[in-house]
Write a protein that binds this DNA or RNA. Structure first.
Lengths: 197, 197
DNA sequence: TACAAAAACTAATAAGTGTTAGTTTTGGCG
DNA sequence: CGCCAAAACTAACACTTATTAGTTTTTGTA
C-alpha cells in the first residue's frame, strides 16, 4: 500500500537506486535481495519492477555514473596547465571529495563492479584501465620534468589509487577523523613522498 | 567418483579451503556456492561435508589464519628496538610479502570478512581495531621522537593500510609489475612522505 | 465525478541455496 | 581375500532467489 515518494528533483528510480546503494555497500551486491531493497523502501519486491528493469540495472547505473564523474574530472585536469604534481594533488583531493559526497556509490563502483553482467563488465574494466593509464601518463611527464621522484608510473598509479580508495573503509569506522584532516594528511604523505627532492 | 587428493603436508580440508579461496576471491563469498567449490575440486557438493562443517567455517578459517599471521608479525615489530620509522617500513614490506605469498587468502580476509557469522564477526572486527590502534601507537611514538612528520596517527594508519591493501587489485592486472619493484616504490613514496624533513 | 495511466498488490514460476539422510563405493590393512 | 572406516554418491529438504502475469488500488486530470 505504501508508495514510493521521491524527494524533489529525483525520480522514483532514484529512490530505489539510493536505497539499494546503502544495502549494496553494507551487505554486498549478491547478498542483497530485491526483497531487502523493497523492504527498505516499504514496498513489495515486484513493485520495484514498475521503475527498474532488473537488479543488475541498478548496479550498472551506479557504477557507470561514478565512472563518468571521475573520467570527467580527469579530462579537466589533463587540459589545464598546472604542474604535473599539482594535477596529481588535485586528483587526490577530488577523490576524497567524491568519497565524502557520494560515499555509497563510490564504494560500490569500486568493490562490486565485478558483479556487473556482460557486456557492461567488459566496458567497465576498459574504462578502469583507461583511467589508470591516463594518470600514469601524467606521472610520467612529471618524472620527465623532474617534478616527481623517479618511480615506475604504473606502480605510482597503483599506490595512489590504492591509498585513496582504501579510505572507503573509514567513513563510519572513525567519525572523529574529519574529511579535511584526512585530505591534508593524505596530501602531505603522498605528495610529500612523490616530490622530487 | 573422483577423490580429493591432497598434496603433501596438506589435509583434504586444506584442499577445499584452497579451492574455495580462489573462488571467494574471484566471485565473492556470497556468490560462490558449495556446488561451485565442489565442481572446482571435481566432486559433488555434499561430499565436502565429510571434511568441513559449513561454508561459513571455510571463510572463518581463512580470515582468522591471516589475522593471526599479521598480529604475530606486529608483535615482533613492537618488541624489537628499531627506530619507529623502520618498524613501519618493515611492516609495509611484510604486508607486500604476504600479498605475494598468500594472495587469495589476504584478499578474502580483507574484503569478505563482513560475511562472517556472529560471534566470529565481532571477534574479527575487534582484532582489526586492535591491530590498527597498535600501529597508530607506533606512529605516535615516531612523531614524538621527531622521526616521523606530524600527522594524525589514526589517519596515518588509515592511509598506510589503504595503500598496502589496495594493491590486492594488482597481482593479475599487471603481471609486468614485479613484487620487488612495487615494494621499493611503495617504501619510497610512503616512507619518504612520512619522514620528518 | 469519471476515466486512464501509474503503481501498487498477490500468486506463482523456475532455478538455485546450504545442508541432511541414507546408501554405495573406495582404499588400506590384517 | 575380507573387513572397516573414510569418503564418495544420489535424493531430498526447506528456503530463498529474481522475475513475470494478472489484478486491484491509487492518483492526476478533464
Amino acid at each position: 500500500m505504501a508508495k514510493i515518494i521521491p524527494a524533489k528533483n529525483s525520480s522514483k528510480k532514484d529512490v530505489i537506486t539510493q536505497k539499494a546503494s546503502a544495502l549494496f555497500r553494507k551487505k554486498g551486491f549478491p547478498a542483497t535481495s530485491m526483497r531487502d531493497i523493497a523492504e527498505a523502501i516499504g514496498v513489495e519486491a515486484p513493485s520495484l519492477y514498475n521503475h527498474i528493469h532488473s537488479k543488475n540495472e541498478i548496479l550498472k547505473d551506479i557504477c557507470f555514473r561514478i565512472a563518468g564523474l571521475f573520467t570527467g574530472y580527469l579530462r579537466e585536469i589533463e587540459l589545464n596547465s598546472d604542474p604535473y604534481l599539482s594535477k596529481i594533488e588535485h586528483l587526490i583531493r577530488f577523490h576524497i571529495l567524491m568519497m565524502v559526497d557520494e560515499y555509497e556509490s563510490v564504494y560500490i563502483s569500486d568493490h562490486e563492479w565485478k558483479h556487473l553482467p556482460e557486456p557492461y563488465l567488459a566496458d567497465f574494466k576498459n574504462q578502469r584501465r583507461n583511467y589508470r593509464s591516463r594518470i600514469a601518463a601524467i606521472l610520467q611527464k612529471g618524472i620527465d620534468k623532474k617534478e616527481i621522484t623517479i618511480i615506475n608510473p604504473n606502480v605510482g598509479v597503483l599506490i595512489i589509487l590504492s591509498a585513496i580508495n582504501g579510505i572507503e573503509g573509514w567513513q563510519k569506522s572513525s567519525k572523529k577523523i574529519d574529511a579535511k584532516l584526512l585530505e591534508e594528511n593524505m596530501v602531505k604523505i603522498l605528495i610529500g613522498g612523490l616530490k622530487n627532492k
